[in-house]
Design a protein around this nucleic acid. Structure first.
Length: 708
DNA sequence: CATTTTGACGCT
DNA sequence: AGCGTCAAA
């Protein structure tokens, strides 16, 4: 409470750099003929002309927006050029944009500041130290006379620069010079803005990408004002101008308030604009939203936000997912397996590159599945250290197998595969080889299944619990409980998993030993006041973040196995390795790669051999046959080896549970429904609870409903 | 069932 | 660990 008033919160200088319509710029650099004409980047093309994900300013001038479909854009602006996101293995491939984003980060890094990658095209920068440094250099000449500090600013850095509350940057600087009292905070912002001007110029010189920036005393404000003047502009927010900004800022525009929390502020507290928050005390806000969020909002209403800029340039997870809607919904096991294989191939490819560049390996692998009834679930297992596509796919698919056994076949609308929990590699290659041997297969695998069969035959009751202590089964043993354990060894899957099956009892330590070396770097919680007023930015020290910060981006490990031999052009060092250019060329390239990696598969059902690509088509044949049997009330051919009755019962039960959950999730159907909250864009109130006080079913939405 | 494909983080 | 929220192109 009172504490907050003592925290000095205008002593940092924070910038947010955001690339202008980034994906379009990337495409414009590839094909300059696009420049100066309306253009947008779309994903896919078949459904209503594809989904637009980036629009350049020429097209925006014609009324084209994101959210639109390619068809809509053509209608609004017939001359618009729609560039498609590259597709690899049948799914959108964002590699070239990730690579371009990394280029930008590398330029920012040259300024020796604390840089936090906030997204593929955005970074927060803590300029406090750099500003202090320059300030001390300047004031060493003439101590305390800050009126002399400003003239040394390079005015070239301020072209395209705006200052909130002033007609021009010059006017602001003039006011600072003329001020009786030295406006130290503003002077710091001015120096920060000068640095940001240099940064943006450097980014343009080295990448040819334009960006915009916001400069303020904290992240929320820097982000907000960055969006005020675009493109290719930067905006400074002196603390004095916060009231003016707040009175003109809709709550939903503020980072973190664009969703349900924002809806709550509008619907229950009547805060349309940020200035309305000022009507509430910290206690009043905390009463409804919890201490943490209440405090955060209260401080924010005064223009304060204490979230640190965390030095991190690498993503914490590498994942991909694909949606399958309408007729594309995955209705057979085979299709699911096929697509899991595609996702796994992409993830492995990206993991391998990540390993070469960043010398780290993912320890965790998560499969996400969304079903047609809106239910979603995820399961995690240990990531195989080998970064082998078949292996990763097998691990992911073994999770899927279990889901099928528990849930039965339900059309799948989305699959996602995410690798995370990265740890730095210890480079001693001999050591790692031995280590990998023991690390093998935390996920599912036959080690689990074999033992499980034993327990089954022992007649599953409490006595078996002792035999199969879940802690001895590795991280994945808990995923689906008993249901997963009923499975017999499935010959169908033995192909890819069998290599890991060997010697179930050879090593009693097994996965236990690898389960948890988690570094548990305590994450600064979102709204917590996490730093002191003296040194805001965590000192770059011994963490892996430091390493990535100073690590030259062109270094890569020689020991890395090159599974895929490069064709044509010699392998380029890392950052420049973005393939692209000619789309046809690159896609051919990729396909070659895939077939090389995946080789030829044998159809599980008829034994015929196909390339993975033909396999999908071939499996449609089986799928059609299955469908026929289903329609005619015939039992599936090979779906499950267990007795029909057992399987049915299990599926029924799981389905009932799932249906109940789904119904619960959608209390208000399509329309705006009963809610008195007019502006709620989100239809589905989940169980998330902004009010931690009651553990009961108080969703944010419940605040809008009829009073009980 | 249509933005889709990401990614970070909070809650429990 | 699993689910939910929020955000960005």
């Amino acid at each position: 409470m009172a504490l907050s008033t003592f925290v000095a919160s205008t002593n940092r200088v924070i910038a947010l750099v955001d690339m202008d319509c980034f994906y379009v710029q990337v495409e414009e650099r590839d094909d300059p003929s696009i420049k100066g004409t309306p253009a947008a980047v779309v994903q896919y093309k078949t459904y209503k002309g594809g989904g637009i994900i980036a629009v350049n300013y020429e097209a925006r001038a014609k009324g084209v927006t994101r959210n639109m479909r390619g068809d809509d854009a053509k209608a609004a602006c017939p001359e618009i050029k729609l560039v498609r996101v590259p597709e690899t293995r049948g799914k959108a491939d964002l590699t070239k944009y990730r690579d371009a984003g990394r280029e930008v980060i590398q330029v920012l890094n040259e300024f020796d500041c604390c840089v936090e990658r906030a997204s593929i095209d955005e970074a927060y920068i803590d300029l406090t130290e750099a500003v202090e440094k320059k300030l001390s250099e300047m004031s060493s000449d003439c101590e305390l006379d800050f009126s002399n500090t400003l003239p040394s600013l390079d005015m070239d850095c301020f072209t395209g620069s705006f200052v909130m509350g002033y007609d021009s940057t010059e006017q602001w600087l003039e006011a600072l010079r003329g001020s009786e009292m030295p406006q130290l905070d503003d002077i710091k912002l001015a120096i920060g803005a000068e640095i940001v001007g240099k940064m943006r110029e450097a980014v343009y010189k080295k990448t040819s990408f334009r960006c915009s920036a916001g400069i303020a005393h904290n992240k929320v404000l820097a982000k907000l004002v960055c969006g005020i003047n675009k493109p290719n502009k930067q905006t400074v927010l002196p603390h004095k101008s916060v009231p003016q900004l707040w009175s003109a800022t809709k709550v939903s525009k503020v980072r973190g308030l664009g969703g349900k929390l924002g809806d709550y502020l509008i619907g229950r507290l009547g805060c349309e604009n940020m200035c309305d928050l000022g009507k509430f005390t910290e206690n009043e806000l905390s009463a409804g939203l919890g201490a943490k969020t209440g405090m955060w909002l209260y401080r924010l209403s005064q223009g304060y936000d204490d979230e640190a800029v965390t030095p991190r340039q690498l993503p914490k997870s590498i994942g991909c997912n694909k949606n399958f809607f309408g007729p594309e919904a995955l209705r057979t096991k085979e299709k699911a397996k096929f697509w899991i294989t595609q996702l796994a191939a992409e993830v492995v490819e990206r993991l391998q590159r990540d390993l070469e560049m960043n010398n780290r390996k993912a320890k965790s692998l998560t499969l996400h599945v969304k079903f047609e009834d809106q239910n979603a679930l995820s399961r995690t297992c240990g990531a195989s250290p080998q970064y082998n596509p078949e292996r990763l796919a097998a691990d992911a698919y073994s999770i899927m197998e279990k889901l099928y056994q528990a849930l039965g076949v339900l059309p799948i609308n989305s699959l996602g595969l995410i690798a995370s929990k990265f740890e730095d590699e210890i480079d001693t290659s001999n050591y790692t080889k031995i280590n990998d041997f023991f690390k093998t297969k935390p996920c599912s695998s036959s080690v689990l299944e074999v033992e499980v069969i034993d327990t089954d035959s022992l007649n599953s009751d409490s006595s078996t619990d002792k035999l199969v202590d879940s802690s001895s089964l590795g991280p994945d043993s808990s995923t689906l409980g008993i249901s997963g354990s009923l499975q017999k060894l499935d010959e169908n899957n033995s192909t890819s998993t069998s290599d890991t099956v060997k010697k179930p009892s050879s090593n009693p330590i097994e996965s236990n030993s690898i389960v948890n070396p988690l570094p548990s770097t305590s994450i600064t919680s979102k709204h917590a006041v996490s730093h002191s007023n003296t040194n805001v930015t965590p000192k770059k020290s011994e963490t892996s973040e430091t390493k990535e910060h100073r690590k030259p981006f062109f270094s890569f490990s020689v020991t890395a196995p090159t599974i895929v031999s490069p064709r044509k052009s010699p392998r380029k060092p890392v950052a420049a390795a973005a393939v692209s250019s000619n789309e046809e060329g690159s896609s051919k390239l990729t396909i070659t790669k895939v077939t090389q990696v995946l080789a030829v598969e044998e159809c599980e059902r008829c034994g015929k051999k196909f390339s993975p690509w033909d396999m999908e088509t071939h499996k449609d044949y089986h799928a059609a046959k299955d469908l026929y049997r289903e329609i005619n009330g015939m039992p599936p051919l090979d779906f499950d080896l267990r007795p029909e009755t057992l399987r049915k019962k299990e599926i029924e039960q799981a389905s009932a549970e799932r249906a109940a959950k789904a119904a619960q999730k959608r209390p208000r159907g399509r329309g705006k429904g009963s809610s008195s909250c007019s502006s709620s864009k989100r239809g589905r109130p989940m169980s998330a609870n902004p009010v931690p006080t009651s553990s009961q079913s108080k969703t944010i939405d419940s605040y809008f409903g009829p009073k009980s």
